[in-house]
């Protein structure tokens, strides 16, 4: 187990290093940020001095090593626009995105798995067909459009929920969270549901496919022959067997939701990381872009590591392979 863990952590490090090179080169290729930052009317001397100050006159590899060296010391640079350390800037936006993404994943999981189980358990029933129809809508209708519809229906027409923004926050474990109050929930529920819709459709289909496959297996028949109730058959035998693909997709989707909740955050004016990165791209705020992408790489690497570890817990046969 320890060997497996070390192996995976080394792999993760390689991924992070490779990604840092790609991100750095990619952002470098976009162009010289100085031209965007300064007043076009300013003179050449000012331009030169700024280029020198940010080190853009040095060779590319030198710039990369300076950047990596700073990063290892926890310094990801300073935003050109906000004049704040980038890490601080991103971390101040992280809780908002985190709570939005986690709430969305919770909605998708708590609805998607039971609905998928039912649709797979009684695939020919009318309710199962309705669920499948809904799941197709879930991942084929564009997110922003559903978001607008939700605002139209619940905020404008019915007036039940606010149309955007984030509720009042309280500090929990050093993070500003809004889901601690009922009012905060009234703000988060629409964007979270909007964000959950795609994942909900995906989880329903995945759970259904797995359930149909496992229901026809010999061990389900054997479990029934032992007189296990249908609830036990599904809850014990089926759920455990279909959990591996579900955990995989859950991990991937959690990562992408955290990193790319941009559309929903924009539609609902949610002050999260997605909005920050879009703003930074439009003004070529290079340190923010680089730091954000590195953070996303970290997120995915960590989530994948956790997913791999959970695999071993879920399926003993994987543990055997990993040990050998």
């Amino acid at each position: 187990m320890i060997g497996f863990l070390i192996q995976r952590i080394l792999q993760a490090l390689m991924v992070v290093i490779a990604m840092s090179v790609i991100v750095f080169l990619g952002v470098y290729a976009i162009g010289n940020p100085i031209d965007v930052m300064i007043d076009p009317a300013s003179d050449q001397a000012l331009r030169e001095s700024l280029i020198q100050r940010y080190g853009f006159d040095r060779p590319l590899y030198e710039q990369y090593f300076i950047f990596m060296n700073n990063m290892l010391h926890g310094d990801l640079g300073e935003s050109f626009i906000y004049r704040l350390p980038v890490l601080e800037l991103i971390l101040s936006r992280l809780p908002a995105t985190l709570e939005l993404a986690l709430t969305a994943m919770m909605i998708a999981t708590c609805l998607g798995i039971p609905l998928g189980l039912w649709a797979g358990y009684k695939p020919d029933s009318l309710s199962a067909k309705a669920i499948m129809g809904f799941s197709v809508l879930g991942f084929s209708v564009p997110t922003f459009w559903v978001g607008l519809l939700l605002i139209m229906a619940f905020a404008v027409e019915l007036g039940w929920l606010p149309s955007g923004g984030r509720g009042p926050t309280t500090e929990v474990l050093g993070m500003q969270l809004s889901i601690t109050s009922l009012e905060g929930w009234s703000y988060i529920i629409l964007p979270a549901f909007n964000l959950a819709l795609f994942k909900l459709g995906l989880l329903i289909r995945l759970t259904r496919a797995g359930t149909i496959e496992v229901m026809s297996s010999d061990f389900v028949r054997f479990a029934r022959a032992q007189g296990l109730s249908e609830g036990k058959v599904v809850g014990l035998h089926v759920l455990k067997n279909i959990s591996i693909p579900i955990v995989t997709v859950f991990g991937l989707e959690l990562g992408s939701t955290l990193a790319f909740a941009v559309v929903t955050e924009t539609v609902f004016n949610w002050p999260g990381m997605g909005k920050l990165i879009i703003d930074s791209i439009t003004v070529l705020d290079r340190p923010v872009m680089v730091a954000y992408l590195i953070l996303v790489v970290f997120l995915f690497v960590i989530i994948n590591l956790v997913v791999d570890l959970i695999y071993g817990q879920l399926d003993p046969r994987i543990r055997v392979k990993a040990a050998s």
Partner: peptide, 30 residues
């Protein structure tokens, strides 16, 4: 009645036990 008064054993022992549950878990459930 199934399992209590009349039980069944199947052909393929590779397939009739759930691969991801311990023998004990499956027997306790039974």
């Amino acid at each position: 009645i199934r399992g209590a008064q009349i039980a069944m054993v199947f052909q393929d022992p590779m397939m009739t036990l759930n691969p991801v549950l311990k023998i004990g878990t499956q027997m306790i459930a039974a």
